[in-house]
Design a protein around this nucleic acid. Structure first.
Lengths: 341, 341
DNA sequence: TTGAAAGCGCTAACAT
DNA sequence: ATGTTAGCGCTTTCAA
């Protein structure tokens, strides 16, 4: 690989001149630029990012921490985030961890070692030790689709509370009498906020929860939870809100193929995320769509404001979702409610 | 951030001693190691990977090029690859590109700039210009789930031909008379090999293809192709092999919800990949399972052999898949055929 | 605008 | 086993 010295020598200029030509906003004459660019091309020269990172202290790498990719919401988000960052000249370094695991600290240490310019944490909670290290290292962190009580990090979420509340209204106005809730992992802010919003919506109509089970955001746990909620020996709900689409699909299959119940005739099902599979006609999930594009844009913005700008305070961004009405739940007569959460 | 010099100074040793302590396999006395480690801990010191990369020329970063994450096969593969590499002390840098796009060159240039130690290319073809640059830069490349005519790269695939052939036998022995094929993107080796194997299997039974359409590996294109193949004005297939699960799901939904056909009573559907969704009971796809774990392991091995070992020749690895029989296709009476492709 | 020179934090001979 | 020294390829003062 040709280095800037080789280019400099061949072009008969100083090495710093070569560097300047490849540094946006440096002061170089046109003549110089052309000469250098020409010989650089001839030598197939490209600046070495590693060396550059060493001197500048910026790597143009963003660490992305993800727990699982089987809930389709995350791959989609990862894809868009990666593309958005790529478009800004940044690259994504992926880190997989377990949702509940303690190894997050090791994982994030690994990130920090690579001198990343920023970190996006999706679907995971950070320990406060870790938080300290990031703060100390001056690496901005943004929580994607999660919030934490400590507010020193930026976060970008959809309005989970508002979404839950809207869904409650949808079911109540749909005339349902026995409304159940299938929860996600209780350590997650998404779960807590969606449930709180849902309960609030129910309460606003003078109603309460008929049944509650926890599916832990896992396919198989959600199946088991559904079986419990719809056990043969007692009256079952006539509508459920499942905390995300991933679990809702598990629940629907149990309802239809094990319990012999029809959706939505016997049970209405609504959920949250609107992953691509929600639109598959075998499910046709009525779901609260996450504004993924805006969330990604807000995440990138927040990151850039810290890295390239001078902003220092964390941002807390909550974006409204949109109710996508399909066929998995009875539609309230004359439903014209705001579909924005 | 504390540097090795700070640690050295405080511990009263040379800076190289500190470096050795953090270099696996270097010769250091126990006393020295302890002393250094202790002060390192006190100073919260961790070696700077960027500086290390600059001197060693290795970054412990593997570039991963992916085209799309909506076909669930890829997220799963990405997740496992990332974990496997992480376990070996490597990290994955993600690059998104369009499958057919010409911007792959730019994308891979971006990778090379980061001095990656290796590249895994999934679901994409590389131009030969690009191939040159990788070869030149001495960066090993392994094609994941793809092969290319140029054989200077390692590749890891499942036995697409054998899988296609086995699926043909399954349908023929199932007593189907009018067998159709729904193709993937014709630029992909997976598509070509699966089709070739399928045709070979049909031919071995003295049969041919009743219908052929191309779904381009895309959900919506596959829907349209299915509509064409099952147009009302002509006799339709009684069985189809859809080149991957992603399209098979699109096809099944069209068959059931638009054409009013039952699966498998009216039409048997088989496909390839066995993504998690194939097991969802609304589909129950009979599908040829990709041996993803072995493929990932083989990919990591091939990479390591080049990076850490002295191996120089490309490997071409083809792993057998396994037929997972579910409910989307009629099961041949007494089906006991080898389920390994 | 350009060049000379000093590092960034580390590894890897080489010498002791 | 440990210390000394010379870079890795670049950016960034500082002078000219």
């Amino acid at each position: 690989m040709a280095s800037s010295i080789d280019v400099a020598r061949l072009a008969g200029v100083s090495q710093s001149a070569v560097s300047r030509v490849f540094t946006p906003g440096a002061s170089v004459s046109d003549r110089m630029r052309e000469k250098v660019l020409a010989t650089a091309r001839a030598l197939n020269y490209r600046p070495n990012f590693v060396a550059r990172s060493l001197t500048t202290g910026r790597s143009r790498i963003i660490g992305l921490v993800v727990a699982y990719l089987d809930n389709q919401y995350y791959p989609v988000a990862v894809e868009r985030l990666t593309k958005a960052l790529q478009a800004r000249g940044y690259h994504v370094m992926m880190f997989m961890t377990e949702q509940t695991a303690t190894n997050i600290d090791d994982v994030v240490s690994g990130i920090l070692d690579h001198q990343v310019d920023g970190i996006v944490v999706a679907s995971v909670a950070m320990s406060s030790k870790l938080a300290d290290r990031c703060t100390e290292a001056g690496v901005p962190v943004v929580l994607f689709n999660r919030i934490q009580s400590e507010d020193r990090f930026s976060s970008v979420i959809s309005d989970n509370f508002g979404g839950g509340r809207l869904l409650a209204r949808f079911l109540v106005e749909g005339g349902h009498q026995r409304i159940g809730y299938l929860a996600g992992w209780e350590g997650a802010s998404t779960q807590r906020d969606r449930e709180a919003g849902f309960r609030a919506g129910l309460a606003a109509a003078g109603r309460g929860l008929f049944a509650w089970e926890c599916g832990n955001y896992t396919f198989s746990v959600a199946e088991a939870a559904t079986r419990r909620m719809f056990a043969a020996d007692r009256e079952h709900p006539d509508a459920i809100f499942v905390c995300n689409d991933h679990m809702a699909i598990a629940a629907m299959d149990v309802l239809r193929h094990e319990q012999g119940l029809r959706v939505p005739e016997d049970v209405s099902v609504v959920s949250y995320d609107d992953v691509p599979q929600a639109a598959w006609r075998s499910y046709g999930l009525t779901s609260l769509r996450q504004p993924t594009d805006s969330m990604v844009a807000a995440t990138v913005d927040a990151l850039m404001a810290r890295i390239e700008g001078s902003e220092t305070d964390p941002r807390r961004i909550s974006l409204p979702g949109e109710l996508i009405v399909r066929t998995s739940a009875r539609i309230p007569a004359g439903w014209d409610a705001p579909t924005q959460s």
